[in-house]
Design a protein around this nucleic acid. Structure first.
Lengths: 345, 345
DNA sequence: CTGAAAGCGCTTACAG
DNA sequence: CTGAAAGCGCTTACAG
């Protein structure tokens, strides 16, 4: 029935603002006002229009609306990756906040590159703003991002004088605490750093904290104390296997640049009979759910993932709604969380 | 410079198809053709237009385009949740495939409900189609989904005669293998099922497989052999603690309805000194990455997550592009993966 | 408070 | 192969 009436109108059979107007006996302008500026419409009229809308199950065409308002209430999210606990949690936080504020998320892990050329059909042009997370120091194209037609918020990269809003994490503080903790039980020359490849922003910063702490104790880190490849379980595993093979993984402390690496190390150690934390003390980074799932439970440095997500959504919405406000630069704290894997309660 | 020229035109300063046309000395229709049906344009003209497009960095307004074509190349994805290994992997698979096929993903875990009323500003109307994942038997509103203005694909729920395309998993087969494996080492009266609440489709199906297998061995499952609450680590933990307190967790086999529950159980057992798999054998479900990270490694039933994701994208695109084709109904297999936690190599 | 009208930036028959 | 024109479904000054 309703469907029937609906398709009376327009050529496509879809319910348009016109059908609502006809049914309510008003102009389409009035229907529009009922929807967008209800206070400019008389009670009675508004009521009639609302009924018509309901009867017809009318829903405004968002393309037409967007064409005029240049708004879609969609936020683009570009991540270096989607997989893993960290991104999973981040997505949740983004989604929750966006949803609460009436926005939707257009997500992609494949769309960093500010693609040239129009043919690409980049749906990204539908968004009101972009949240871009960066993890690599190179190939960043912050230029491109800030020249984007939409406002943008960058997660993970900051630099003095940047014209875009940024949200970064203070790797330093948490890392420092973790390393101090390791140094309270092991001498500096028996401490190791296992991280991702050079150029990864977080890994590099965590490494810096590591080196600084060792130097403060008067020990210049040897190159064999620093191992870098990638944020993966396998890499941690491989590193630990190598160390064990050389009889080196005894009475040492390891600061891993993320939890996955730490878990790889811990598993290898366990499988090869190295006692944790007796003979090997390990601390990870991220404080993902995995930390408490493992045995021994993994000490780690907490990343404020939800805070990052919430801040990013709030920031991008602020920039969308107040484009002329000055871009802010947030820095969120990390905190050391001690558990079993690093002993010395 | 370029920017300058760009803003010569239109009131907004944005580059429109008009500015491109002027610069190339053609009509806007021709510009449009170069972009959409290049074969209908002469080489020379096309070349000039392309240059203008490049110089001006023109990108078509997707709202205007969508208004005409009713296409955005955006696929809506509605999930019951975003968190956890399963959804994380699913999102990856969806994103990869969508990206490869030139589509984008509009994701939400908060948008199942086919919201009434227009005011809601549901950006979902911007999508070309929806992928909806269902996990609960009740409150499903398949009706609503199939009446959506866009094509839809449902993951996780199937029923004879459904008008929407569906993709489900064959819980039966994999679960059956897992339980047979457990029954090869424990008597039916010493087997337990720990799952999610009644009404959860997957949990129920896995339970059915469990019961069927026990009955085949001539044992009617006692009510205390079946425990249901939720898909969580904590629930598994709590259940195991209870069993241990009553001295019941000895020489038993547990089929957990997902990996998280299984891990909770395994951890509780470990912390309380129950030997796995010596005294307790456990099998999970999902075969998430966690299985290999734990010690002992967790036996599980593999969910074809990537396959589900890829199939869903391909299905929705097929429905978008060929709306009149008959909806298909796919059923993907699950397979048992034996590891250490269930012993009996 | 309400309506007629212009226009957002495109696509697509329709002529030529 | 190309252009003039209509129109997609809305919003928003502008009058009244």
């Amino acid at each position: 029935m309703k469907r029937q009436e609906a398709s009376e109108n327009g050529r496509t059979g879809a319910v348009s603002i016109r059908s609502v107007a006809e049914r309510a006996g008003v102009s389409i302008a009035t229907v529009s006002r009922v929807l967008n500026t209800p206070d400019k419409v008389s009670q009675a009229t508004a009521e009639r229009v609302r009924e018509a809308i309901e009867d017809l199950e009318y829903r405004p065409n968002l393309f037409a609306k967007g064409l005029l308002t240049k708004r879609s209430r969609v936020i683009g999210v570009s991540l270096p990756d989607i997989h893993g606990e960290f991104y999973s949690e981040l997505m949740c936080a983004l989604d929750d906040r966006a949803c609460a504020l009436g926005y939707h998320l257009l997500v992609s892990s494949n769309a960093h590159r500010v693609e040239r050329g129009p043919g690409n059909g980049f749906a990204l042009d539908l968004v009101d703003g972009m949240i871009v997370m960066l993890t690599e120091r190179t190939g960043v194209d912050i230029e491109g991002i800030s020249k984007l037609s939409h406002p943008a918020v960058v997660i993970g990269f900051d630099e003095p004088g940047l014209e875009v809003e940024t949200i970064v994490v203070d790797n330093q503080t948490g890392a420092r605490k973790a390393i101090e903790h390791l140094l309270s039980g092991n001498t500096p020359d028996r401490c190791y750093f296992v991280g991702a490849h050079r150029g990864n922003i977080d890994s590099d910063e965590r490494l810096n904290a590591f080196c600084a702490a060792l130097r403060e104790r008067g020990h210049e880190p040897r190159s064999d104390q620093i191992a870098r490849r990638e944020f993966s379980f396998d890499w941690g595993w491989e590193w630990a296997e190598g160390m064990i093979d050389e009889g080196l993984l005894e009475d040492v402390a390891v600061f891993a640049a993320n939890d996955e690496i730490a878990i790889g190390i811990a598993n290898a150690a366990r499988d090869r009979g190295v006692d944790i934390p007796g003979s090997l003390r390990v601390v990870g980074f991220d404080d993902s759910r995995l930390c408490s799932l493992l045995r021994p439970k993994l000490s780690s440095v907490r990343m404020p993932v939800r805070e990052i997500g919430h801040a990013a959504i709030e920031a991008i919405i602020r920039r969308i709604e107040e484009p002329d406000s000055a871009p802010r630069h947030a820095r969120l704290a990390t905190t050391f969380v001690q558990r079993e894997s690093s002993g010395l309660s």
